[in-house]
């Protein structure tokens, strides 16, 4: 079954697969996580805000993003973004947004919806009684947040954030539809050029598995370590 495997094709393409493919995958994951978290925090704040307009906007944004398939969003944003740019800077023609910049913005906007839900759940996971207790012992709002709510919320949401980052790492493979050279894109380009689909796709699966498995192992350990025993 594996007798006519050409392991050499994997070996030969390793520099390309990792230096270009995996480098892009990791960059995209890292940038989208950082900016997604920042934007997600803002959205979560809007959602929990007292203003109906802000929370309404946040709710519809989150629900919209969470109802659409990522592939569709990748296509749509790739085509739409230059016009948005044109609209924002009022240029007389569409603003050039390259494939890479476009995917970064797309993933940031898309993941922000998911991160904001994690943040919201994290903040709301702290029992109401603790906040009251905080006020009762004379803390002000800022102190209650700083010393009571946020440390616990952060502990609750940290493992979930990491898990979502692993999901994001896997989702970046979808940029394949735009012919971008991420890890899977690189593997498929080699596979198609050399007619070695079996080897390359199994190898890609193995690499993704090892990375995600190791990462989720550490997330689990982290979860055990920082969890609050009630």
């Amino acid at each position: 079954m594996f007798s006519n495997f050409d392991y050499d094709v994997i070996w030969r393409s390793l520099p390309y697969l990792f230096q270009q493919g995996m480098a892009f995958t990791l960059t995209l994951t890292a940038i989208a996580t950082v900016f997604g978290l920042i934007l997600g925090t803002l959205i979560a704040m809007m959602r929990l805000s007292s203003s109906a307009v802000l929370s309404g906007f946040a709710v519809s944004y989150v629900n919209l993003m969470r109802s659409l398939p990522l592939v569709l969003v990748i296509f749509l944003f790739y085509f739409l973004m230059p016009y948005v740019g044109q609209w924002i800077i009022r240029s007389d023609q569409p603003v050039q947004v390259g494939a890479y910049a476009s995917t970064i913005v797309t993933f940031t906007l898309f993941e922000a919806a998911y991160f904001s839900e994690i943040m919201r759940a994290g903040i709301q996971s702290v029992p109401r009684g603790q906040v009251m207790a905080g006020y009762a012992i004379g803390l002000n709002y800022r102190e209650v947040m700083r010393h009571v709510v946020l440390p616990q919320a952060f502990r609750n949401m940290l493992p979930v954030i990491f898990t979502q980052t692993i999901v994001l790492f896997q989702d970046t493979s979808l940029v394949y539809v735009l012919s971008i050279t991420d890890f899977l894109g690189a593997a498929s380009k080699v596979a198609q050029r050399d007619g070695r689909l079996t080897e390359m796709y199994l190898f890609a699966a193995l690499v993704y598995f090892l990375i995600c498995f190791t990462a989720s192992f550490f997330v689990k350990r982290l979860q055990k370590r920082i969890s609050i025993i009630r």
Partner: peptide
């Protein structure tokens, strides 16, 4: 075609 049209 969309990428030519949208200036990418």
């Amino acid at each position: 075609i969309p990428l030519i049209a949208n200036g990418t």
